[in-house]
């Protein structure tokens, strides 16, 4: 599939999904509320810490607010339209288009991750970066990036996160071809993804003996990596390597997705349309 077709599909899907502004607004309210609760929990933790924590409080704030802003980017759910196509057998009709099915769905899925994120990210960043200091809550506000290099690497890393998240969501989509109802694998994701990406508790705050395991898993690239690049917890000198790892995981998961889809298509074809 060439990039023009890919971008056309992404653009069309985004335009459609950007219509859901009310949902985004409601989401903004909820995520702001949870953000404050998390901030207050960590204020209490840090006030009673007996030893030096592995992250500064400012770094934790970055982690929390970026996490709330980019929540919709996490691959914890599936595109209902694709799920419905698989359930109803409509997926066969996608094969009438002269494009590869994986690329076709990848474009749709990328838009499915990107559009809601854009809608929620902008008000959340504006509120936590500008509004909180303005209302006198400067010590709870989202701090600026550690340096301009950190800011630049953060943007690159966030794009890699989009790619990685889309690749994981694609695996969820393809797995629907085996477990039609979308249970099982997809029920697991809302539990596993926020925990392993660092969204519940920042990964550096986990016990030392877990750090090795947490380092070598793909979900880290969904939140922990870009957030720590922003706050400087990952120094700019290591950022390239970390982004490289995000891309490496993405490539691996895309490869897996393509292989799974090829197998699934064989099944689909045997079953009929």
């Amino acid at each position: 599939m060439n990039s023009r077709i890919f971008l056309a599909i992404v653009a069309v899907r985004c335009r459609m999904l950007l219509q859901y502004r009310a949902a985004a607004l409601a989401g903004f309210g909820t995520q702001l509320f949870w953000g404050f609760i998390k901030v207050m929990v960590f204020v209490a933790f840090y006030a009673s810490a007996v030893s030096e924590p592995p992250m500064t409080f400012a770094q934790v704030l970055v982690y929390i607010w970026l996490g709330q802003a980019l929540l919709a980017l996490l691959p914890w759910n599936v595109d209902k339209e694709i799920a419905e196509q698989i359930r109803s057998g409509g997926v066969a009709y996608e094969l009438l288009r002269p494009v590869g099915l994986y690329g076709f769905w990848f474009a749709r899925t990328l838009a499915f991750r990107l559009a809601p994120t854009l809608l929620r990210m902008v008000p959340m960043l504006a509120f936590t970066y500008f509004m909180l200091p303005w209302v006198g809550l400067a010590e709870w506000a989202l701090p600026p990036p550690a340096s301009s290099a950190a800011g630049g690497f953060f943007l690159l890393s966030a794009l890699a996160t989009l790619l990685l998240s889309t690749a994981v969501t694609m695996i969820l989509h393809i797995s629907l071809m085996w477990t039609i109802s979308g249970e099982g694998f997809n029920r697991m994701m809302p539990g596993v993804v926020p925990l392993l990406s660092g969204l519940i508790i920042p990964l550096p705050l986990f016990p030392d003996w877990l750090q090795g395991v947490l380092f070598w898993q793909p979900f880290r690239g969904l939140a922990d990596v870009p957030f720590r690049i922003y706050s400087g917890h990952i120094p700019a000198s290591e950022a390239v390597l970390e982004i490289g790892m995000q891309l490496g995981w993405s490539a691996l998961l895309i490869g897996m997705g393509v292989a799974l889809l090829t197998r699934a298509r064989r099944r689909l074809v045997v079953q009929g349309g």
Partner: peptide, 21 residues
């Protein structure tokens, strides 16, 4: 069964097909 995109205006479906084909 329609092969147009359910939520899109007809002309946008046409434009997407133009790109796909």
């Amino acid at each position: 069964r329609t092969q147009l995109w359910w939520d899109l205006p007809v002309v946008e479906s046409f434009e997407l097909l133009r790109d796909i084909y």
